[in-house]
Design a protein around this nucleic acid. Structure first.
Lengths: 189, 189
DNA sequence: CAAAAAGCTTGTCCTATGTCAACGTTTTAG
DNA sequence: CTAAAACGTTGACATAGGACAAGCTTTTTG
């Protein structure tokens, strides 16, 4: 159950078995169904999730009812409605598992407790933030001034498995193009 | 010289005068001219900058020679080519002061030294990353599916002074629209 | 202070991409 | 296992906004 999480942690920081077990003891296993909602629009996010199996998606729905995908976390990745988790404001977005998944969840209280008391865990969090920041930047900047074809090429380069793993509809909404356009582009490679 | 920086720090963490002076001693004053380049495209960024006066801009130039603005830091804000600063890879972007400015610069070595040794400074950095992450997210998501008019309204709501402070050209390139379009939109309010 | 450079606005034209609809295929759930 | 729903693909059409250019205004700099 905790192998993947332990691997994630041990590959990033020096830590002994006791400390590792203590960190893991803060994460509770959680099985979810396809399309199960973890955080609703108006809710305040209280958990950080590690994906052991499956996939979680962050998305919104605009006034016209169109979904926009914001972020995906796959096996071995962390994900949550971070702005809400950090600031304890309503999420203004949804978090869901798009397929049957196995997650490890840590409460916000326990999470920040670990950050405050364990330098190794503070480092892990720092790296999550640094990486998240860089990824967000690359996505903004990578997409700026790109036409649809360039966006698709970009995602193929930077997340090769992405288009294979999620539906066209979700992929298109992540790239900020219409499903028709994505379909047309893929047919031309 | 250090008032603004001290204000920034003391408003975010508990700290005594000695510690504050020690932090400040790591920051060196630096005066720059209009359009002075701080980090070039192929350079590795070695400094973090606090803006005491003026404004720094992060931007790129694509193959066609068009500039795209990525980020602006104004008085009282921190800015640098963060991905390069963190990973010590070439920046692939430019950092410049767009007007005569007064900066406080801390070297990467000293910066991480402070992060590692002073919990208060680690907290400051964590907050910079958290805020940067949230801001980047809001910008991606705020812009996704927006047309030009909605982007302009968004920036007026979220950064009211922005359009007044930077040129149309830079503002347009930040919003991902052409200067002509921005001009047309502004004329209709 | 004057010349030059840069920036802003606005017109015309054109293209990439969105919308909508039809149809066939795959997935889901009872 | 089958009916119903969701999804993917493709065509026809409409349009937001980009490119370019001309003219005017503001800023810069020597």
């Amino acid at each position: 159950m905790y192998e993947l999480l332990k691997k994630y942690i041990s590959s990033r920081t020096q830590i002994n078995d006791k400390e590792m077990d203590f960190i893991c003891s803060n994460f509770k296993p959680l099985k979810t169904k396809r399309n199960e909602i973890l955080v609703r629009y108006e809710e305040i996010c209280q958990q950080y999730y590690f994906v052991n199996k499956g996939c979680i998606r962050l998305f919104t729905i605009n006034k016209e009812g169109t979904e926009t995908s914001r972020f995906f976390a796959f096996e071995g990745g962390f994900g949550t409605a971070l702005p809400s988790f950090i600031d304890q404001q309503p999420a203004f977005e949804y978090l869901q598992t798009i397929e049957k998944s196995e997650l490890l969840a840590i409460s916000r209280t326990d999470f920040y407790q670990l950050v405050e008391t364990m330098p190794q865990f503070a480092l892990i969090y720092r790296e999550i933030l640094e990486l998240g920041f860089i990824t967000a930047q690359k996505r903004i900047y990578g997409f700026q001034g790109f036409d649809a074809l360039e966006k698709v090429k970009w995602i193929i380069t930077h997340q090769p498995h992405f288009l294979l793993r999620v539906s066209n509809k979700m992929a298109a909404s992540y790239l900020g193009i219409s499903p028709s356009t994505l379909s047309r582009i893929k047919s031309k490679l």
